[in-house]
Design a protein around this nucleic acid. Structure first.
Length: 425
RNA sequence: GGAGAGAUGGCAGAGUGGUCGAAUGCGGCAGACUCGAAAUCUGUUGUACCCAUCGGGUACCGGGGGUUCGAAUCCCUCUCUCUCCGCCA
């Protein structure tokens, strides 16, 4: 949630900043109306409650002194129904306001480029030189099929479209990529490796994003309040939900490998071929819980941790700062890492690194105790480090050879028993 | 899946209808004593919200609902934890 104090103090400024995300991000008039009604009703309810409490106390005292409490009792009974009525009204109004506020996206950071669509994202830097191929490049589907290791027909038979079966050397390569990423972040970047549930409650889902707005993107378990995680961010960030952390426990740095499940409800016809956009894919996720004043420095660090994966794998990429119209619901600022895919002659997203500031922390009630001993929301960040399926795609495409084999990047070879190349079976 | 027990503040643990936001102990913080520390003593120590200048008020004893003038305390329900039985990778 956005900062309610800020919203009360200067609703116009909040509305102006949210407008940079696009029309309809925030209905200022609706907010002002709800808030005005809430204030008035809450004051009157609390005054009535105070009167009731006073009266109840007097009745208790009268009874203790064996005095006649009859008149007081009659008086109390009389005002009861009226109070109950307005308490109900207030509860309804408060939940209405809460629902409204939970649907409001985060305020973009001032450094985020203002723009309506991905075309207005800002390229920050490039790394690596796309390789010149002396032959016609194949995409990862054809490379994988040629090696007999990627099988979409079997996957479709089992589960429909947007799933994959991997076999043999390619299944091993997939696993090697996971191991390499986990080891890199745990050993060199100081993250603690964690294993987590792949299903979380609706409350956890609403802690990191808006369940009301995005439930169609998730797979839900029939008849239960459980959702398959679309990213390890969901369980891992919620580690600190409803906690008040001692200052010295920060920062918390977690790295987590998990499968991710996405319905891809709005993606009909998009990236239908191959492993780019599947219902199930693996990802190694980086999550940090930090002091508020450190979060922008940490965003740069976390992004560089994800970049290190691409550098070690010798995959050319660029870093893009998403514009106000393209950043996610909860994010204040996001860098996308885009890897070079020769078959598309384009950079494609392989990681997304975001600072959510206190937005998720307020939704989750995740706080730390500041120097004055007061609880205040932590800042949360996460980034893919990286999406495993897309990394496999990038390796297959960038390291393919004219004879159909694939050279294995040096950094992965220790994870494959020293194997330097994947050949036709 | 069946039977039983339980869930109270940072932790332990009392409290079975009225002055309980909650005893007591531990821990934390501040002070006294000390050259300093330990020990001891004294004080203090939950969260959110509302109105307001000081200050006052409301809510919260696992979640939700109910009974009552009044609920940590009584009733219903859900969740979780523990013990025993069954099943099982």
């Amino acid at each position: 949630m956005i900062d309610i104090q800020l919203l009360r103090k200067d609703p116009d400024a909040v509305a102006r900043r949210l407008a940079t995300r696009g029309a309809g991000a925030f209905d200022l008039d609706r907010y002002l109306e709800l808030e005005a009604r809430r204030k008035e009703l809450q004051s009157s309810v609390e005054q009535a409650q105070a009167a009731r409490n006073r009266l109840a106390k007097e009745i208790g005292q009268a009874k203790a002194k064996k005095q006649d409490a009859g008149p007081l009792l009659a008086q109390a009974e009389q005002s009861k129904a009226e109070l109950e009525e307005s308490e109900k009204d207030l509860a309804f109004l408060q939940s209405e306001l809460e629902d409204f506020l939970r649907r409001v996206p985060n305020l973009p950071h001032e450094s985020v480029p203002v723009g309506a669509s991905p075309e207005e994202n800002r390229e920050e830097r490039r790394w690596g030189e796309p390789r010149k191929f002396g032959f016609a490049v194949k995409d990862h589907v054809d490379v994988g099929a040629g090696l007999g290791g990627i099988d979409f027909e079997t996957a479709a038979k089992l589960s429909g479209s947007r799933f994959v079966v991997m076999k043999g050397a390619l299944a091993r390569l997939h696993r090697a990529i996971v191991q390499f990423m986990l080891d890199l972040h745990a050993r060199e970047h100081g993250y603690t490796e964690v294993y987590v549930p792949y299903m979380v409650s609706g409350a956890c889902a609403d802690g990191v994003s808006s369940l009301a707005k995005f439930k169609d993107d998730l797979f839900k378990l029939e008849g239960r309040d459980l959702y398959l995680i679309p990213t390890a961010e969901y369980p891992v960030t919620n580690f600190v939900r409803e906690e008040i952390l001692a200052s010295e426990r920060l920062p918390l740095k977690y790295v987590c490998h998990s499968p991710c499940f996405r319905s891809e409800a709005g993606s009909a016809g998009k990236d239908t071929r191959g492993m780019i956009r599947n219902h199930q894919f693996d990802k190694v996720e980086l999550v940090q819980i930090v002091h508020p004043e450190k979060s922008y420095q940490v965003l740069e660090e976390l992004t560089s941790h994800a970049e290190t994966v691409l550098k070690r794998l010798e995959l050319p990429y660029r870093v893009v700062s998403l514009c106000t119209g393209d950043i996610g619901f909860s994010s204040a600022k996001t860098y996308d890492l885009e890897v070079w895919l020769p078959s598309q002659s384009a950079y494609r997203e392989i990681s997304s690194c975001s600072n959510f500031e206190a937005f998720q922390a307020r939704r989750m009630q995740a706080r730390w105790r500041n120097e004055k001993g007061k609880p205040e929301p932590v800042h949360t960040l996460n980034g893919s480090g990286l999406a495993v399926g897309r990394t496999l795609v990038a390796v297959l495409e960038n390291f393919q050879e004219a004879d159909g084999s694939v050279t294995i990047p040096g950094t992965l070879r220790p994870y494959l028993g020293g194997q330097g190349k994947i050949d036709r079976p």
